[in-house]
Amino acid sequence: MSNKTLAILSYITIIGWLVAYFNCKDQKTKSDVVTYHLEQGLGFFIVSIVLNIALSVITSLIPSLYFINLIGILLLIIWIIGIVNAANEEKKPLLLIGKMFEGKFGFLHQ
């Protein structure tokens, strides 16, 4: 697979992330772009899972706050931005959350 495909795949579900990770790991020369988007993709998955669990708990305890589930639309926008950056092979952090995960996953650089 090409580096562009692996970078895009790192945002498409956790299974896509795993496929991109193992393909990148097997390459003799690792692409900085793919590694960067693997970091961003994993960070996005972690944030989205934690946020969805927190929102589910909040809305189950206080049903009148159902409108905060619209934060999911923001997650969709962030996800699309990540895919577009990967398709353009740019190393731009994700909106709002990307800087938190730059260089945080050391196992991706080995």
Rank of each mutant, 00 (worst) to 15 (best):
L18C: 08
A20T: 03
A20W: 03
A20I: 03
Y21C: 04
F22I: 13
F22R: 15
N23D: 08
C24S: 09
K25T: 09
D26V: 00
Q27R: 14
Q27F: 05
K28H: 01
K28G: 00
T29S: 00
T29N: 00
T29A: 00
K30S: 11
K30N: 11
S31A: 00
V33Y: 01
V33M: 01
V34I: 03
V34N: 01
V34W: 01
T35W: 02
Y36C: 00
L38Y: 07
L38G: 05
L38N: 04
E39N: 04
Q40E: 00
G41H: 02
G41R: 02
L42F: 13
L42M: 10
L42K: 05
L42H: 04
G43S: 08
G43Q: 05
F44V: 04
V47C: 11
V47T: 12
S48K: 08
S48C: 09
S48Y: 10
S48I: 10
I49A: 13
I49V: 15
V50P: 09
V50L: 15
L51A: 10
L51Y: 06
N52C: 13
I53C: 14
A54S: 11
A54H: 06
A54E: 06
A54W: 08
L55E: 14
L55C: 13
L55H: 09
L55I: 15
S56F: 14
S56Y: 13
V57G: 04
V57K: 07
V57T: 09
I58C: 03
T59N: 00
S60R: 07
S60P: 05
S60F: 12
L61H: 04
I62A: 12
I62N: 11
I62K: 13
S64P: 05
L65V: 03
Y66L: 12
Y66D: 15
F67W: 15
I68A: 07
N69A: 09
N69T: 13
N69C: 09
I71R: 08
I71W: 10
I71S: 14
I71E: 08
G72D: 06
G72W: 05
I73W: 12
L74Y: 08
L75Q: 11
L75Y: 04
L75E: 10
L76Q: 00
L76W: 01
L76D: 00
L76S: 01
L76H: 00
I77N: 08
I78H: 10
I78K: 07
W79L: 09
I81M: 04
I81H: 02
I81V: 06
I83Q: 01
I83Y: 02
I83M: 02
V84M: 12
V84I: 15
N85I: 12
N85H: 14
N85Q: 12
N85T: 11
A86V: 14
A86P: 14
A86C: 12
A87V: 04
A87N: 08
N88P: 06
E89H: 00
E90Y: 08
K92C: 12
K92W: 14
P93F: 07
L94H: 02
L94K: 01
L95Q: 02
L95Y: 07
L96I: 13
I97T: 06
I97K: 04
G98N: 02
G98T: 03
G98L: 03
G98K: 02
K99V: 12
K99D: 15
M100W: 03
M100N: 00
F101T: 06
F101I: 07
E102M: 12
G103W: 07
G103M: 08
G103H: 07
K104E: 06
F105L: 10
G106E: 10
